[in-house]
């Protein structure tokens, strides 16, 4: 089984390298991370934290948008594209099971996303550290950011597989993926914000809101990174909601999502007739 998963992963990695996806994703990450690091360099003196801390804080906000986007761009075509090209039926007649196929593709996609994130955010981190200093705490925060951003990407990879298995065509899958991104990354927060404003400090805001928020993997990612580092929390000014939750809430949410999503993708894929 491992050999078959590995075989799928190797072929998938080859494709990602061949079609320049890996290079493009890494380039986008580097570009945005560097731009944010320089744009966000102003307040470091005033708050008394090193430049890397400021950089990690801005990159957290960046990663919330970018990691899901890149992940969905990679995953929406995974099953729908194979079906559209007519390669899926043949692949499914080979001894690899559907779970093994998904796992192999996921391994390759997570690796690619991990490479893009590490190089992208890492480069910006090194630049920030060189120009404005870094400490043990800020380096740890950067490492945490890179790992959690990859996990966040994995969540949207598996959710992308779900859409890809359900959609009738690659175009439909792309549309669904765009909708999913919009809902999880933008609309969800807007909706919560609206609810909090309406509630005006009531029970919802104090008890329900933090849990609903952390149930969203994108927010769980943000809360985890902010809550884990005092410096980052201070710079981002978003510590409030995070402090109302137990420390384990965000990590559990973010780590549970990929497992949950993979299960959903497996079920959706099993129902598919090529």
């Amino acid at each position: 089984m491992i050999a078959r998963v590995f075989a799928i992963a190797r072929a998938e990695m080859l494709i990602l390298r061949r079609n320049w996806w890996l290079v493009m994703a890494t380039g986008i990450m580097v570009l945005f991370a560097l731009a944010l690091t320089f744009a966000g360099s102003a307040p470091s003196g005033a708050l008394g934290v090193d430049m890397l801390t400021v950089s990690v804080s801005s990159m957290t906000t960046l990663a919330v948008y970018l990691a899901p986007l890149l992940a969905l761009m990679m995953s929406f075509d995974t099953i729908a594209g194979e079906r559209d090209r007519g390669t899926l039926a043949l692949l499914l007649t080979y001894p690899a099971g559907r779970g093994e196929i998904l796992l192999g593709k996921l391994a390759a996609h997570v690796a690619a996303l991990g490479i893009a994130t590490t190089i992208g955010l890492g480069t910006a981190g090194v630049v920030a550290a060189l120009s404005g200093g870094a400490g043990v705490e800020s380096v740890t925060a950067l490492a945490r950011l890179i790992v959690t951003a990859t996990v966040l990407g994995a969540v949207f990879l598996v959710l992308g597989y779900v859409l890809s298995a359900l959609a009738k065509s690659p175009a439909a899958a792309a549309g669904l993926a765009a909708g999913l991104w919009l809902v999880f990354v933008v609309l969800f927060d807007l909706g919560l914000l609206g609810a909090v404003v309406m509630d005006d400090g009531g029970v919802f805001t104090r008890v329900v809101f933090p849990w609903v928020m952390v149930a969203n993997p994108a927010d769980a990612f943000r809360v985890w990174n902010i809550a884990a580092s005092d410096g980052v929390a201070m710079v981002s000014g978003l510590g409030g909601a995070a402090q109302m939750l137990p420390y384990w809430a965000a990590p559990v949410s973010l780590l549970l999502w990929p497992v949950l999503g993979f299960g959903m993708a497996r079920v959706a894929f099993a129902r598919l007739e090529p």
């Binding site: 050999a3 078959r4 075989a7 799928i8 072929a11 494709i15 079609n19 090209r85 390669t87 001894p95």
Partner: peptide, 20 residues
């Protein structure tokens, strides 16, 4: 049909690995 970005050898290697 096969994945267009793979070579013939790579595609066949993948299938061979799946069979074992």
């Amino acid at each position: 049909n096969f994945h267009p970005t793979l070579t013939g050898r790579e595609q066949l290697t993948l299938f061979a690995r799946l069979i074992g």
